[in-house]
Simulated assay, not measured.
Amino acid sequence: MLETEKSGFIKVFQKAEERRAKSRFDEAIELYIQAKGLCGKDNEARLSCLLALGDCYRMTGIYDKAGKSYEKAHKIAKTSSPASAPDALVGKGLTLRAMGNHREALKIFLKCQQLYEISGDSAGIAFSLWAKGGAYRIKGDLKKAIETFKKALNLFNVLKDKSGIGYSFCGLGGALRVSGRFDDSYRFYSKANRIFIRLKDTFGIAYSYCGIANARRMKGDFKGSLKYFKEAKSYYKKIGDRVSFAYTLWGEGTALKMMGNLQNAELDFRKAQKLFKLTEDERGLSYCGLSMAELIFLRGKPHRAIPLFKAALKRAKRFSFGVEIKYAKRFLHAAREGRGFPINLP
């Protein structure tokens, strides 16, 4: 790369990094693409752009482009920068995990952890542990999820990585909520929120606000949870994270449903379902399928609701979503018994 080209690349790339640091992912994507066009034959520069593009596409739910970016990055890294190869693989694993393929994601995270251990990359080991914890959570192995998040937290503490600590707290908050430990969940999400506010991490703030909202919802404070869902939605909308925005809509819709506001709950569920279809998020579609079917049941149409509960169960089984399989069975049992609704899912 010529000095003039290098100078131009650095300027654009730094602008992209600044946008990404502020969670302005759509703007960052445009700049990274521009920077990639200035790379010439510089594989290191191209690799940096591709890894960053993969992250930004993944954070906004554009999984097909995220996967392609990580695959191209991995191809370059294998020959030009072997130390960066696990970074590209982790990104691919996170993309697969987000799309519901936790089994393949776990294999990738394990491989990456081994590669990081060989190279002595402690930060990489911690990140791969955090990623594994999330995959175990989706699989439904909550005990392993909690154990793995704790290992990641311990290592991030050793590294004094505040961001890693915050995201580990969020991981624990989610796994503990699904385990029924709502007070602990609220505590971890609140600790994460304080960290992210100090760091000015927009995505982390949104993530922890949504977690706080769901923990409060599970503690029975439906009205109080709405304030935090509103905060999370506002941040996610600015970020452009369609997937997290959709899960926040689902959580808010569930709180409204529990308050008896079925009309507004349905509006949230339908908006979330539309986004989950757009991003091909099968787990999110499982939740929306159950929630929409429950509304139909609550409106006195069990004959229409039961087939929809069965369809949601079938979807959860197809993707081996352990937790969601249990939820679907619970809904189906309640529908057949004709009692037990409404259900406040974690």
Rank of each mutant, 00 (worst) to 15 (best):
residue 19 R to W: 07
residue 35 A to P: 03
residue 14 Q to H: 11
residue 14 Q to V: 07
residue 27 E to P: 13
residue 42 D to T: 10
residue 37 G to H: 09
residue 40 G to S: 13
residue 38 L to M: 15
residue 39 C to N: 15
residue 36 K to M: 06
residue 29 I to K: 06
residue 30 E to N: 04
residue 23 S to R: 06
residue 46 R to L: 12
residue 38 L to R: 05
residue 30 E to Q: 07
residue 22 K to P: 01
residue 25 F to P: 09
residue 22 K to I: 02
residue 43 N to C: 08
residue 17 E to M: 07
residue 33 I to C: 02
residue 24 R to L: 14
residue 33 I to M: 04
residue 29 I to P: 14
residue 46 R to E: 14
residue 38 L to Y: 10
residue 32 Y to W: 11
residue 37 G to F: 06
residue 20 R to S: 13
residue 26 D to F: 15
residue 40 G to F: 15
residue 27 E to R: 03
residue 46 R to W: 04
residue 31 L to I: 13
residue 46 R to F: 08
residue 26 D to Y: 10
residue 32 Y to K: 03
residue 46 R to M: 12
residue 29 I to V: 15
residue 24 R to H: 09
residue 34 Q to A: 06
residue 22 K to R: 09
residue 14 Q to K: 07
residue 44 E to Q: 13
residue 22 K to S: 13
residue 26 D to Q: 09
residue 24 R to V: 12
residue 40 G to I: 15
residue 32 Y to A: 01
residue 14 Q to F: 03
residue 20 R to Q: 11
residue 18 E to S: 07
residue 21 A to T: 09
residue 20 R to I: 01
residue 28 A to V: 09
residue 42 D to V: 05
residue 25 F to Y: 11
residue 22 K to C: 02
residue 46 R to P: 02
residue 33 I to P: 00
residue 37 G to I: 14
residue 44 E to R: 13
residue 24 R to T: 03
residue 20 R to C: 00
residue 42 D to Y: 06
residue 41 K to L: 14
residue 43 N to L: 15
residue 45 A to H: 05
residue 40 G to P: 10
residue 23 S to T: 09
residue 22 K to Y: 06
residue 34 Q to R: 11
residue 38 L to H: 03
